[in-house]
């Protein structure tokens, strides 16, 4: 039972992170609420025209500020920004580090 509860809270935490990532995406890319319809498999890089080099940097800076994490320059890689899921996984991995 205890294990179940722990799993549930981990799941809620990850859900919060996804919500927060979507909120940040929506704000930075001026999507006017479109990000609410995104799922983990929604493609980002190459699929959303608003995601240009400036938006990528703004996104990184905002993630750093909002989650209090540090992104290395080498983390700025196409695979990180491929989908909503890959970006959320990246945030999770940085938070766990």
């Amino acid at each position: 039972m205890r294990q179940v509860r722990q799993l549930a809270s981990v799941w809620e935490f990850e859900l919060d992170i996804t919500q927060e990532v979507l909120r940040i995406l929506d704000e930075v890319l001026s999507l006017n609420g479109r990000a609410k319809t995104f799922t983990g498999s929604t493609p980002l890089l190459g699929a959303i025209p608003e995601l240009d080099s400036m938006a990528v940097v703004t996104l990184i800076t905002t993630l750093e500020e909002q989650f209090g994490l540090v992104v290395d320059d080498d983390d700025i890689d196409g695979s990180t920004f491929a989908t909503v899921g890959s970006l959320t996984d990246f945030v999770n991995s940085k938070l766990a580090a």
Binding site: D52, S53, M54, V56, I60, D73, I76, D77, G78
Partner: peptide, 16 residues
Amino acid sequence: RLKVAWNMLDGQSKGV
């Protein structure tokens, strides 16, 4: 970092 992101969109950002 804009330069790094710019290169990333071209596929190569390592070492920029």
